[in-house]
Amino acid sequence: MKISVKYDLNITCKTILKEQLDKLNIPHVLHGTGEIEIKRAISDEEMQELFNNLNAYGIYVLNDQKTALVQRIKNTINEMLEDDRLKSQKVSEYLADKLNYSYTYLSNLFSETTYTSIENFVILRKVDHAKDLMADTDLTLTEIAYRLNYSSVAHLSGQFKKITGLTPTKFQEILERRRGTRIQQTI
């Protein structure tokens, strides 16, 4: 049997946070999205336990301003890639402009925190987008390359191969076969 559910992520998160904080008897106030004010000093052990408990729900504590900024960088990049109008915009300029920091600073911060560079992340993100398009639409590689602002199909293929170790064709083949086995299983 399958049932469909609808949920409000905001409420879900707040509920989980409240439960977990209450469980450890930590007095707190929940501020808007993603900020918690803790009312008393807590030990490292307590802190670690809380983090671990929250991790199980996929909630991670961004324990400093830097991490928060990195998240903002990622969000901005996502935003940018999804907006057709910003296609030709340079990532560095856009980020610096949008986040009001110098690109060098952002770049260093990002590498330090995520083990990868902004450029790499953009590529990863773009390839991921390409994967989505390959998986969910009937667009041809040429169309996808155009949409994602690649100069040619070869460029897209090259980058795809570099990131995934697979050619786009092979990738599509595997996805198709996966779907086939899945359908067989449900039957």
Partner: peptide, 23 residues
Amino acid sequence: EKVLQINWQYHTSNLNRDNFLLR
């Protein structure tokens, strides 16, 4: 390291994990 990095990206950024293939 590369596997962990990319895996980490899939965990921390909202990338589509269904399409996570790496050779």
